[in-house]
Structures are given as C-alpha cells and as structure tokens.
Nucleic acid binder design. Sequence first.
DNA 1: TATGAATGAGATTTCATTCAT
DNA 2: TATGAATGAAATCTCATTCAT
Lengths: 220, 220, 220, 220
Amino acid sequence: MPKDTFFKIAEVKRERLLRQAARMFAEKGLNQTDMAGLAERAGISKGSIYTYFDSKESLYLYVCRDGLERSRKAIYGTMDPAWDIYRQVDHIFRQGARFVLDHSEYLILYINVASAGMERFSEQISREVEHYTADHLKRLLRRDMAAGIVRNDLDVNMTAFMINSLYIVFITSLISSHFKIRMREYLEIEDDFDQDRVDGVIARTTTMIHHMLHPAVAAS
Amino acid sequence: MPKDTFFKIAEVKRERLLRQAARMFAEKGLNQTDMAGLAERAGISKGSIYTYFDSKESLYLYVCRDGLERSRKAIYGTMDPAWDIYRQVDHIFRQGARFVLDHSEYLILYINVASAGMERFSEQISREVEHYTADHLKRLLRRDMAAGIVRNDLDVNMTAFMINSLYIVFITSLISSHFKIRMREYLEIEDDFDQDRVDGVIARTTTMIHHMLHPAVAAS
Amino acid sequence: MPKDTFFKIAEVKRERLLRQAARMFAEKGLNQTDMAGLAERAGISKGSIYTYFDSKESLYLYVCRDGLERSRKAIYGTMDPAWDIYRQVDHIFRQGARFVLDHSEYLILYINVASAGMERFSEQISREVEHYTADHLKRLLRRDMAAGIVRNDLDVNMTAFMINSLYIVFITSLISSHFKIRMREYLEIEDDFDQDRVDGVIARTTTMIHHMLHPAVAAS
Amino acid sequence: MPKDTFFKIAEVKRERLLRQAARMFAEKGLNQTDMAGLAERAGISKGSIYTYFDSKESLYLYVCRDGLERSRKAIYGTMDPAWDIYRQVDHIFRQGARFVLDHSEYLILYINVASAGMERFSEQISREVEHYTADHLKRLLRRDMAAGIVRNDLDVNMTAFMINSLYIVFITSLISSHFKIRMREYLEIEDDFDQDRVDGVIARTTTMIHHMLHPAVAAS
DNA sequence: TATGAATGAGATTTCATTCAT
DNA sequence: TATGAATGAAATCTCATTCAT
C-alpha cells in the first residue's frame, strides 16, 4: 500500500517513520493522530509522507500490517516446530509477553482495529492475521492428538479458539489501560507488574491449558 | 455526571437520547460521533444536550456507565444465587450472549474504552465494572470449593480471571467486526452465526470450564 | 427602559438585580456577561429578567444610566453651591475618588461605553451625562470670573474641558487595570494605593488647577 | 507571538492582514470580531490565520503591540531631541492628532485594552507602552528644569502624569464615540471637527501647559 | 524528491431569548 | 408573575490534503 518511493528512501528514514507512526497511532488512535505532528516526530515534512503513502489511512493500514508481521516473526521465528504443543504454547506466551512489553504499540494497534468505526481495517487485516495463528494451533493439536499427548475427544477448532483467547486477553492485560486495571482487579495486584508476576501468570495459564488438553491429566 | 435537568425531563425523551447516543457512539466511536447528528437522531436540539450534560465526553461517560449497569442487570438480575457455579457460569454466557445480540452497542462501548486514547475513561469506569464480576466469581469459587464441587487446589483469582477472559472474548466475538472474523476463522464458519451455533459454542465452552474446575473430572 | 413590572417588585429584589448586573457587566463586559449567570447571582430566574427588561442591552443601558445617576448624587448631592470653584473642584475629586473606590463598577461601565462596538450606547448616554458636568463647571467658572477669583482671559469651555479631563483620568486610574498600571508607571508607585497617596495626588492636582486658574498665581 | 510562518509570507499579505485585523478589532471589539470575516476581509482563508497565530487572542495582542509601535514611531521618530519641552509637547499633540486621524484603529485598540475583561491584555501591554512615554516626559522636565525654562518646584512625576493625561483625553476625543460627544458638549461644537478646530484646541492646550510649567509666567 | 504554506469543511460549545406550565 | 427547558445561530479552531517552489 505504500508507493514505490517509500522503498527507495534510506532505511533509517523508513524505519523512523514506521516506528513513530506506530507509536502515535497507538498512543492517540487513528483520528487523534495528526499528520503534522507525526511528520515532526519522524523528522520529515508532511508533504513527504504523502509522497510515500496515498493517505493517512493507507499509512495506518500499512503500519498495522507491518506490526503484525513483526510480532509474528518475534514469536514464531524463534520457535522449533518439533516442540510439542505444550512447549510451543508456553513459548508463545513468553515471547508474546516479551514482545508486547518491548513494543506495546503493535498490540495496541491490533486492539484498536477491533474498535468501533474500524470495520474497514478489520476487513482487510483480521482474516490474514488470525488465519496464520489459527492454522498453526489447529495443526499442532491434530499432530499431538495423533501423537497421543492431546486428548482426542477435543473439538480442535474450539480448543484452538480458547487457547488463543486466553493468550489475547493475557497479553492485552499487559498494556491496555482498561485490561491492565481489569487484571489487577482479578489478581489483586496493587503495585506494578514485574517480570516474576508475569512469569507466574504464564505458568498458571499454561498449566491450566495442559490440564485441559492432556489425556491423562488426573492429578497433575 | 448528567446535570439535574436530565432527570426532570420526560422519561421517553431521556431514554431516546441514551439509546441513540449509545448507538452512535458504538457505531462511529466517540470522535466520529457529532453532536448535531446525535441531537437529530434523538429528536432534540443540539443545545438541549448541553442542558443535560456538560460535554460530549460527559455524555459518553454516562452512556458507558449506564450501559454497563443495564448489562449487569440483564445478566445478574435473573440469576438465582443458590445455583452452583457451573449453572451460574452457563447462565452468564447465555444471558450475556442474549443481551449482547439485543444491545450490541453496550459491549462495543466497553471494547472501545479499552482503545488507544481512552485512558481517561477506563480510569473512571474499568475498576468499578470489573470489580463486581471479579468479586462474584471469586466468592462463587470459594463457596463451591467448600462444597466440594470445585477442585480446592485452584488459584481462585487466576481461575476467575480465566473464566471471565473466555467470556469476554466469546461475547466480543459475537459483535466486534474483527473478533467476529477471528471466530469464523477459528471455528471455520462461513455463513451467519445462528442461535444454534451460539448455543453450541456456549455448551462447548462451559463444558471445558467444568472440566477445568471439577475435582473428579479424571478421564471424562 | 425597564418594563412597568420592574417597579412593582420588592425593592430589595430590584436593587439586588441592579447591583449584580452592574458588577457582572463591569467585571466581564457586556458580551461576556451571560444572562443565566446574572440571574443566578441575582437570585432570580432568567425568565424573570425578561419580564422586567426587553433585552440584555436594555438592561445594560438602564444599569449604566442608573449608575451615572448614583455617582452624580454621591458627588453633587453633598456639595454646597455657594463654595468657590476651588473648593468645589476639590470636593468633586475627593467624593469622586471615594465613590469610585466603593463602587468601581459604575465607573468601569462608563469607560466601557467609550469602547469599540459601544456606539449605540454612547449615543444614548454620553450627551446627557456630560452635559450636566460641563454645564456645572462652565457656570462655576463664569461666576467666579465675575467674582474675580478666576482669570478672565481663560476660554471657559476649554478650561472646563481640561479640568474634567484631569478628573476623569484620575478616577479612572484608581480602577481600570490599564490606567492603574499607567499611574504607577508615572508616579513610580510599587505597592498598593492607600488613602494617603490618593489624597496626595488629589492635593497636587487641585493645586495645579488653582495655579492655572487663579488671576494672581505668581508664586503660589 | 506570531509563529515563524508569519514572517515568511509576502509583506503585502502580512500588512493586509494586520491592517484589516486592526480595523475590525477597532470597529467591533475583540469578541465581536469573527475570524471568518477577518480572513475574508484580509483575502486569505481562516486556516491561514491559524498558521500565523495560535489564537484570536494572540493575534489581537500582536496587533495592539504593533499599533503602539507604529504610533510611537510616527510621533517620536519625527522629533528632534534638542527641542525644548514646549516644542516637543506641541509636536506630540500635533503628530498624535495626525496619526490618530489617519489610523484611528490603533488608538481605539488602546482604549479597548482599558475596558472590562481586558485585564489579561493590559497586564502584558500597558507597562511597556506607558513606560516609554513616562520616561521621556520626566527626562525632558528634569533637563529643562536644569535649563531654567521649567519651574523647579514642580513634582516631576505628577506633572508628566498630567501632561500625558491631557494628551490622552485630547486624542481620544478625536475618535471615541463617547469622548467625541463629550468634547462637543464641552466645547459646544455642532458640526464636524475640522483641522482648524483641532489646531485651535491644541494651541489652547499647549498654551495652558506652558502656563503651568514656565517659571516666569506671572500675569501673561 | 522534499517542503511547508494554504485551504475550507466540519466539529463542539455558548447563550440570548421564548414560552408552556 | 415566575420559572427553566428548549432552541439554533454563530463562533473558534483543527487538520488531511494539495501544490507551487
């Protein structure tokens, strides 16, 4: 969606624009982000942005796609496909949390696309984003069912849906103002979330997932 | 947060304004909703809204609070406190789904408050909203642990958090453009979501929750 | 300019409205004074004001006229017509200063009528106000010229004009934000204006006037 | 107080905006001047004004300051510092009258700043404006006292204050609706003020000032 | 290719005045 | 006579986008 010129400029410039755009869009939302302010923060002129992108929305769309691509790489790029589902899920939660704490802007963008008035973006982005993850989880479930380490009476689609739901709410709780408050209310946390707490929540969550999926859960 | 005047006008007028405001805010979001348009849809003048509320934001805040109150009543007002946790959770999912399908606007508002640039609202709303549900679920878990129908090795807070997480993603999937697409992708649904499918997903979910919580789940 | 009803209401109510109106108009100016706020400060309803006056402007005009009448009474009502011009001028300065320090609102209204966009008021008020004072000063000058205590080579009109000019700038300096700053700059005053300083300025001014007018000024 | 952009545009455009702004502000006052109307009269778009100034008030403040600067140049720029105080005062009155008759808008702005609700402007403008004139008059008085052409028993500050007071009332009488009426009432003028009359009033005034200040005025 | 001045539609909010009760 | 809810015109300011340089 960017114009050709965007890929001809110096990489640092390109990266700076993308990063600042992601940050501003995440901080203020699409409508409240003004192109003049963005240009200034990116150290270029308003006019230049329009030589790279057709419109603010076009830039927004690209920034979202780019962010989703980055987060996918951060999580799936470091994962060994040979691991069993439990280890992979654990990895997803851990790497996801790490990525989100480093680059909250991308997750915020993802959440915003689920907001009112954003239908035109979700139509373009949502399916391609979710398909990758959905597909991956489903394959994994089937593979490990066959391997006998996942109960074979589970509804694969539904299970994948639930695992990913827990994942989304969990990482969202690390950054969205509302969901952060919500998590604190549930988990009765007063002070800031430190690494230990995050690890604890992840461990508890993956344990529960293990418990749901494993054929011979019994005691634990 | 409304001015006194608001409670002195005819109830139908008050209700019409609240309903139309909820719908417009849900449809377009806070920023894209214009007061002139809202006034017209509510059948009153722009000026009148300002005799009821100090500002657009003040109206937005009240509409959100009011919507959360309505949804709470719809769900918890029809629930027998004597029911065991499984039946109550099932009731929450079913009544929640029903409410959301009838009044999607209120859930959309809830999601929007989690968006970028909405921190000033989440600060005012989130805790009070989440506290009620969190508290309810935790009490229930403790009561039924004591009653021996919930495993007593569970982390109460964490478990409540996960149940509610599944609930939120589920009802959000019924209405948010993005999450609807996501659910279809996971559950491989092509056509519109009908009542049967919704019931099916609820059944599957509550079964899984039962499985997670019940002491003697063992094999199945 | 008020309607008949205005003179049928209780005097305290009438006075309260006039006083609060004078204060608000003086404090904020005509345009920035809002009828709702005024009604509240006067302890009556907006609607009531419109049963007494046709419009905001009509009220403004009456308040100005009323204030000018009050200031005239305060100054000229306590003056013995038999006094010579020097004593009368001294009296005017002293009583003027006293009145203005007690009721700055009325002088502020007078100054505001000289502002941009106030032509429609000055047309109705200015002549009648200035005529009284001008006439009085001119008569006095002529009388005391005949009595031999004012130089008879003076231009009566011009002299009256100058005496009144000095008076206006002086009392305005006691209350207008700008003219107060101006007086401090000229007289090099750092701290607040106390009664002694005011008296000193008056003495200096009337002495100079005496010097200008008296036939045998010479040394003093 | 303008933004940098304002000084980068063509001078004719800049001057046109300043002139029209001064005229509109003088004609209608700050509040009644609308930015759309001003933009139209200045031949530019509303938006452009906001690329030059942060706000209407910021523009107003600059227009006032600019006007005061222009009037200072018109009066003091053409004055020989070697002249004695009487000639300088005469020059000030004559050049002041000329400037004011050519550019009444600037004096009207000056008067308006002394109005109710304009405190925030007088705080910023008044001292710097009055200081220059006050300082000049005081120096002159001291110099010519030493030279023996001004009585040395005069209170310098007070005398400067009175000379400037007469000056302000005089030029204000040439343009403010109210003060024009007042001057006519005092000087009994029916028809329009022509150049001869203005000259006459100036001559009379400066004569009287000479009379007040000169050591050996005695009889006349 | 880069710039930033110019545009003008559009949004929120205010407030004098009316009028049914 | 008193009230205060209702009105809607009007005003300031924002900002995505264009285009001459």
